[in-house]
Design a protein around this nucleic acid. Structure first.
Lengths: 148, 148
DNA sequence: TATGTTGTAACCAAATTAAATACATGTTTA
DNA sequence: TAAACATGTATTTAATTTGGTTACAACATA
């Protein structure tokens, strides 16, 4: 099991829209960088738009960030593309037997731990912004140029 | 997407084996409490055995914990049942385009964040033991009795 | 030897994912 | 106005994973 790549593709798309802010970031352009098809990008763009992270209009080529990149966290993207439902990162077996002490209490006992674990993960994502990712990419590019 | 219930079923199984330590915890008995079929339980038992968490022998009914319940963390179970491969909780789109500054750097830029998020989640699981879960279950049972 | 248990392998149906196709809707421009 | 191009959706497909099921070999015990 793995969390859908919609999340990391979403981050890729947002970073590229910002880096290409002077140009036109159409779904085809973005798909080329991600190396997938424009339809998938448009599906993800739709989710990012619904979450208020980008601005994009039917018929008009190109997307722009709807907020400053320093105000968009990876957690925003993660929630926008809906890769994990609220409190459902872990799945729990349904209908344990009520005649057993463990069966009738395990879900209530384990759920708080699972929620805490999921929150810990989300907190890390909430502390990193698109700007952070872009800065890192720019740094890596500089290093590349120095070593050419 | 959701992490397989093998994990929470594994915790259920270990807790019940310990609670029923004076009795015989066969795969059929355990399956009854979890409310699934014995084959699935045996598959999970095989993983728990391989990870050194339980002792169980072919032909002999019943499983026992191989360690004290205070020395078995939920992270041990999580790793034992192999619900998430090492560093692969998040999936990343393959082969982004190398001609794009974002495409050729995004994986290296985002991977450390994803690893940190996964580690944060695992750390929470590592701080809770089977004994903690059992204590909580016993507490809930006491509360139940008081309110009968 | 008969019974019951663990340990596997094989198979199935359901759900999810990424990719692909098709097309309606909207915008621009030639 | 018509042609070209973009977004926004719906539908289909193949691959993968999951949980469930059946079948059966290997082992232990009464």
């Amino acid at each position: 099991m793995s969390i859908s790549s919609r999340f990391t593709v979403g981050v890729h798309v947002l970073a590229l829209i910002e880096l290409n802010k002077e140009g036109i970031s159409s779904s085809e352009f973005l798909a080329g960088s991600v190396n997938t098809n424009p339809t998938l990008i448009r599906k993800i763009m739709g989710m990012l738009k619904k979450a208020g992270l980008i601005e994009v209009h039917p018929g008009i080529a190109g997307a722009k960030l709807a907020k400053e990149p320093s105000y968009i966290t990876l957690l925003d993207v993660y929630k926008a593309v809906d890769v994990v439902k609220e409190k459902e990162l872990f799945s729990v077996h349904e209908n344990p037997h009520p005649n057993c002490p463990v069966g009738r209490n395990i879900q209530d006992s384990i759920t708080p731990v699972l929620s805490a674990a999921q929150l810990a993960l989300e907190k890390v994502l909430g502390n990193v912004t698109i700007e952070d990712i872009l800065k890192d990419i720019v740094d890596k590019e500089k290093f590349r140029i120095v070593n050419e």
